[in-house]
Design a protein around this nucleic acid. Sequence first.
DNA 1: GGGCTAATAAACATAC
DNA 2: AGTATGTTTATTAGCC
Length: 667
Amino acid sequence: MMQESGTETKSNGSAIQNGASGGNHLLECSLREVRSNGETPSVEIGAADLAHLQQQQALQVARQLLLQQQQQQQQQQQQQQVSGLKSPKRNDKQPALQVPVSVAMMTPQVITPQQMQQILQQQVLTPQQLQVLLQQQQALMLQQVIVSLTAARVAPMDPQQQQVATQQLAFQQQLLQMQQLQQQHLLSLQRQGLLTIQPGQPTLPLQPLAQGMIPTELQQLWKEVTSSHTAEEAASNNHSSLDLSTTCVSSSAPSKTSLIINPHASTNGQLSVHTPKRESLSHEEHSHSHPLYGHGVCKWPGCEAVCEDFQSFLKHLNSEHALDDRSTAQCRVQMQVVQQLELQLAKDKERLQAMMTHLHVKSTEPKATPQPLNLVSSVTLSKTASEASPQSLPHTPTTPTAPITPVTQGPSVITTTSMHNVGPIRRRYSDKYNVPISSADIAQNQEFYKNAEVRPPFTYASLIRQAILESPEKQLTLNEIYNWFTRMFAYFRRNAATWKNAVRHNLSLHKCFVRVENVKGAVWTVDELEFQKRRPQKISGNPSLIKNIQTSHTYCTPLNAALQASMAENSIPLYTTASMGNPTLGNLASAMREELNGAMEHTNSNGSDSSPGRSPMQAMHPVHVKEEPLDPDENEGPLSLVTTANHSPDFDHDRDYEDEPVNEDIE
DNA sequence: GGGCTAATAAACATAC
DNA sequence: AGTATGTTTATTAGCC
């Protein structure tokens, strides 16, 4: 009975999860590419009006948004400063912003594969960082949109127009916000989407519509709208039209659109990929045509050094961003991000197509020419918005953390069979990466794990905890835990003896699992505090993660899972927002956040303290306290009270998947 | 190579 | 006696 007491609490204050940085450049980039095909929905509004109207409204709203955006950025920048790219030992509780990756990075810098690998093995951004990067980038995009809007018009308008414009603007704002949320969610689900989509079910509910309307699209749309407005204005009102070219994206051929008045119209789901031509470069960019330089600032991820002129920029570029590990690492990250985005884009295109087909909306072949899909767009957007979130919730009233998905670049790579023969390999699970399992994780990959005999990338402890937390009363009997395992994971439908033993072993071994005498008999509960303590693993934004991603193991799963999880962590707010209807989820979300922070705190502060706020569970009657080598005497109080085994009726999934390979689905 | 953690295996105890 | 449930120990493997 003597377990390594206290050994679990190590004080390596490096629990991390620092996050990362956001860089929406990535998004912007790929999106821009998508959108850059000058073809856009034509605007034909009664528009001269709108043009005027929007001025004031837009200005105001824009200011607000800008302020918000700036604040965000500032915060991020601050974090960024605090946390150097190479400081894996940070204890920051906040995701440390690190490298605002920008599309520009893609500029081929001639990096040898070996170098890349090196980099990957040494230091890369954590998934969280990537996530933050993306978000940041997105914020920038929004800002740009707003700016372009405000800049575009500065004329008075009459009340009527104002009303229209106001509505329109409001809608646009909503779209933007929704889009933001969607993007976040999307990112977190990216890889998952790759996997969860199975032949049979091309459109899993889990899959959000990636781009109902991406910021860039909005931007484009706006531009077109505005430009057409201005054109009309000029014609009818003799208004001098502002040249929008100064804005980020210059619509080379703004055509007429048919939307505008129809708020939903703006959601043109159309995303035809286009040659990544950047017709939308700012002046500087045009003059110097260097994607890494813009607005007098070096756009190298994480840099943002101010360079007065192009020359100084070049100097800076050569000196600060020479070919070294760090640069290549960043480049590598960028590449991965772009890859993911491309994949996602392709998938979402298909989905969009399917949706439109379903709705009998003509148009949009994968590469179809852009058409005003007013109707559809709105539908898709709202639909996805509503579908995406609920999906992850229904089954799992728990903590939304990470959409963990065993996905890799090649979705198809991971097949049941491929993973199958792996056998009983001892492998580190997500805990290693400080990625607690969450219902969201499971929920979002539920289908996958249910049907594919893929070993879930979680430790037994995490799974057990999850099972317990998912239960209504946060407690389960051993048998119920078993059932949960078999129900949720196809993998556990075989070799029952093995994993059941492991489950029992874990329950006994980890003090985070508390056995409680219950009416039913004995049930197991989770002591969150203890659980947090026992996850001292540190990632420190270290490369190992990404490195692993590259080094394709038979289990690429854990990695991506971890990656996704990390990324998703940043979007917790999203989940909470989306889960308004589900209080539990909200609580769990916050709980999860606490967990994350807590984990670090605990690790920092010598985890020997288990006093204060013990989990409610503890208040029950833990029959036996683990870990501390208590006196042999008092401890094992003969469980005379135990009136065990009254296997809860709850889950008595009669079906006990025993050792034999069972292939049936649990649905 | 050592330390740590987790998976796996198995012995053993207890209750039903 | 057999099974379920728990506990404990030992071994192995992956990671830092």
